[in-house]
Design a protein around this nucleic acid. Structure first.
Lengths: 159, 159
DNA sequence: TATTGTTATACTCTATAACTATA
DNA sequence: TATAGTTATAGAGTATAACAATA
């Protein structure tokens, strides 16, 4: 949704002038603030990886296939909460870029086993490095690793 | 995105059995955890207000118009980060439900001033009550108001 | 019968361009 | 010339149904 106004106190009266700020109770609502932070961090991800055309979901798939080579499409898509029907064109894209390979599964001839190509491995290690730098930057903004851990803990309570 | 697996330690080795859990580094990544929590809380919002067909964006608009009656569409949509073109059908819907009214603006004949109808006011006060209950429930899950404030503070640092 | 990958399709969200009527 | 509201449209993301091959 957002990209929003500087925060203001909700208990301040609304001035009468034409272009005054609006009172906005929702900027203290958990759902709204979660959404705003999530969109902001995702946009930061997008601009960080713009030059290599990498979306968050593709990054997750690459790291997942890297750490779990040979898994079926359905196993990878399940972890990410992506319907198998919607997963197909995403893998199509990664395969067209020769980062990921579909190979017939040895145990189940219905299934595709997913692997990183050599180029995919190199790419994945590189973007993972950049992702770590992004996490470090965000951690700094939060006030250090303890604050980051605190945030992750609280987010987990809502998930 | 998610609806995910029980958390596990990323440093545990991946077992060889066919249906073992996958290693998933991203479940410690800020962006991913933010997204998961946001989706979860939004889904909770949707099921809470399912019987009155209220989406988060509509709730925000109603409270915003309630607290700032007579504002132009562009002023309300700007606060929420919604393009004015996309705002039109949303207001169409709220107007069709007779919760919100477009009235010609006194000062600017290009603009629509937005107001709650009598029914819209009643509806807004009712859903605001239920929203407060939802916030209370989430606050409980976080471990109390101090934890909630902590979370909001950390989210603001990322926004 | 059930599952894997796939196609087709639809619905929501979001983004842009262009039009009109005003300013 | 710029702005408010509107329309049309295109792109993502997400959801379901159905089919072929295989379990």
């Amino acid at each position: 949704m957002p990209r929003n106004r500087p925060a203001r106190r909700n208990d301040e009266p609304l001035a009468d002038s034409g272009d005054s700020l609006l009172t906005f109770r929702d900027d203290e609502a958990l759902g709204y603030c979660l959404r705003r932070a999530q969109v902001s961090v995702f946009q930061e991800f997008l601009s960080t990886f713009e030059d290599v055309s990498l979306r968050p979901v593709e990054y997750s798939i690459l790291t997942l296939v890297h750490d779990n080579p040979g898994r079926k499409q359905i196993e990878i898509s399940d972890v990410l909460g992506i319907k198998r029907a919607n997963f197909v064109p995403i893998i199509d894209g990664l395969e067209a870029r020769e980062l990921v390979e579909r190979r017939p599964s040895a145990e189940d001839r219905r299934a595709n086993a997913l692997y990183l190509t050599r180029a995919g491995l190199k790419f994945t290690l590189a973007v993972r490095k950049r992702h770590e730098a992004l996490e470090t930057e965000l951690t700094l903004r939060l006030g250090g690793p303890a604050k980051r851990a605190e945030l992750l803990e609280l987010l987990r309570l809502l998930s």
